[in-house]
């Protein structure tokens, strides 16, 4: 099927749509030759690229489509395909590189910091929010399966919650975590996660888990 022409409107529409990650990735990958062709063309005297704003929007959204489909090595390869001139000038593309480094090194706190604090364009915001929620879901599943007992501050660090409040036993945070099936022992001041299993064919967590994870929709940091 013929895709609509490569344009800012089309990419913005895709970003705002709630298309499944694999579909989003597939559509954006079909636009990459257009972006590549445009980046080689003449245009802005500063960057040499045809439409720097469109190119940055495209490459940033394609980068997030990789993250949402858990294609991390391929996301890294994509950053190596970013147009050289834009890579060093555009804040969004710079943030993509910082984010990739944090994900690569499994530094959860840094991932949340980059997602919440860096300069991302307004158009890209739906994807940033979507990825943050996705990353939080993944972190909850990972922590639930990796820890038998965990201190609230450590759990909060993995899940992008306020670590100081968690350390002081903030009831709101404890309540958020126990709502996911975890047990809280006030005497030992420890949380006991319960295992979460995700069917292998499902790219997304199941509905039950998703319900519990919805609690995290508002970041506390």
């Amino acid at each position: 099927m013929e895709l609509p022409p490569f344009s800012r409107e089309q990419i913005s529409k895709l970003i705002a749509s709630n298309a499944p990650p694999s579909q989003l990735h597939e559509i954006l990958s079909q636009y990459e030759p257009d972006a590549c062709l445009m980046s080689a063309g003449s245009g802005s005297p500063e960057t040499g690229a045809g439409d720097p704003e469109l190119l940055c929007l495209f490459y940033s959204s394609f980068f997030f489509a990789h993250l949402l489909t858990k294609k991390i090595p391929e996301a890294r390869a994509l950053t190596q395909r970013f147009p050289e001139t834009l890579k060093h000038h555009d804040p969004s593309l710079q943030s993509c590189l910082t984010l990739l480094r944090a994900i690569w090194q499994t530094e959860h706190a840094q991932v949340y910091r980059v997602l919440r604090g860096q300069q991302w364009s307004e158009t890209l915001q739906p994807l940033i929010k979507r990825y943050e929620s996705f990353f939080q879901d993944q972190a909850l599943i990972a922590v639930s399966n990796s820890y038998e007992a965990i201190r609230p501050a450590v759990a909060a660090n993995f899940l992008g919650l306020d670590t100081q409040a968690a350390e002081q036993g903030d009831p709101t945070i404890i309540q958020k975590l126990t709502a996911c099936g975890w047990t809280w022992n006030p005497e030992s001041q420890l949380l006991y996660p319960s295992r979460i299993t995700v069917p292998p064919t499902d790219q997304q967590p199941t509905n039950d888990i998703r319900g519990a994870l919805a609690i995290f929709s508002t970041p506390s940091v």
Binding site: Q105, T106, A139, A142, V143, N145, S146, Y147, E148, A149, I150, R151, V154, S188, Q189, L190
Partner: peptide, 18 residues
């Protein structure tokens, strides 16, 4: 160690203490 377990590279669990 936590990174190794979370990434699936190590099949183990961590137990923290107070």
């Amino acid at each position: 160690i936590a990174s190794l377990i979370i990434s699936g590279a190590l099949d183990a669990t961590l137990v923290q203490t107070p």
